[in-house]
Amino acid sequence: MARATRSSDWGFPRWRAYGAEREAVKVRLCDRHGCEAPGDRPAPKSPNSPERWYFCETHAGEYNRNWNYFEGLTAEEAAQRESDERRDAGDFSESKHNSWAGPGDGTRSRDEIRALELLDLEVDSDFEAVRMAWRRLAKSNHPDVKPGDADAAKRFQAIQAAYDVLKTAEERRTWKPD
């Protein structure tokens, strides 16, 4: 004996449109007080906590702008956590050689960014701009140009160290295996 009603959900492809369920769909609202938008963007309530807030897109952006990952930690604890996470995140650097991304989009390390700031350059500067800035600053702060000036000697050493960091990073980026 055949059933009186037949479901149209059998097999693949589904024979009715997605989202056309007969049951009411439970929608979670944004956890921000007074907001009636759907809360479909989870955000952690505190570092290393499984509990989550659920915000709409606008309030998730506001929450992320004000998020401090190291809140409540001393400077030593924050430095320790950062070093632990850098050590644990080393596997992500395995795909660095693929060069999928260009400069200025997260491919530069923190040391490279500091070196670029020291040379008064933008994050997306190419190596030719780095070389020109290094030459300009090195000439103006060289100990032979300013003899006896201890501050100029320190600036020259910092400029040289920044150039070395950027040069090794550029060599690493442009190196191609045989």
Rank of each mutant, 00 (worst) to 15 (best):
F127Y: 03
R136F: 05
S46H: 05
A161R: 10
D40H: 14
E122Q: 15
A101E: 03
D105G: 07
S8C: 01
L116E: 00
A169S: 09
A43E: 14
G11T: 04
F127Q: 06
A133W: 03
E51T: 09
A37Y: 12
S7Q: 13
A129K: 11
G61S: 14
Y69R: 15
W175Q: 06
A153C: 05
D31F: 01
A133L: 12
V130A: 02
I159N: 02
R173G: 00
E23S: 15
V123M: 01
S46C: 13
D149K: 12
K45M: 15
G72K: 12
A158I: 04
L73P: 02
E62R: 06
Q80A: 10
R81K: 15
L118W: 00
K146T: 12
F92L: 07
F156D: 02
R22E: 10
N141H: 14
Q160C: 04
S95Y: 01
Y54K: 00
L166P: 05
P50G: 15
L29I: 05
T58C: 04
A115N: 03
G90N: 02
P147E: 08
P42Q: 15
R52P: 04
D124S: 05
L29R: 10
D126E: 09
W134Y: 14
R173E: 00
S46Q: 15
W15A: 10
D111W: 02
E170I: 01
G61D: 11
R52C: 06
S99L: 05
E21K: 12
E112K: 00
E122K: 09
S93A: 15
L121P: 03
R52A: 05
G148D: 13
A101K: 04
E112A: 05
P147H: 09
A162E: 09
A4I: 09
A158D: 14
E76N: 12
E85S: 07
R81G: 00
V145A: 13
A20P: 00
N48V: 01
R131P: 03
S93R: 05
S49A: 13
V165R: 07
T5Y: 06
G39N: 03
R155T: 10
P42E: 03
I113R: 00
R3S: 12
Y163L: 00
A153H: 08
D40F: 01
K146Y: 06
D124Q: 02
P177F: 07
C56N: 05
G104I: 02
T174S: 08
D126R: 09
P103Y: 00
E23F: 08
V27Y: 10
F12W: 15
N66P: 02
S7I: 04
Y54M: 08
A75C: 01
A2V: 07
N66Y: 07
R3M: 05
P147Y: 04
R173A: 00
K139Q: 11
S7L: 11
D88L: 06
R136P: 09
A101R: 00
A115Y: 08
T5P: 03
M1F: 13
D88Q: 11
R32L: 08
Y163N: 06
N48G: 06
R87N: 14
R65S: 13
D120T: 07
A138I: 04
K26A: 11
F156L: 06
A162R: 06
G90Q: 11
M1A: 11
P103I: 00
Q157A: 14
C56R: 07
R108Y: 04
T107S: 01
D84H: 07
S8M: 08
G34M: 07
K167M: 08
P13Y: 03
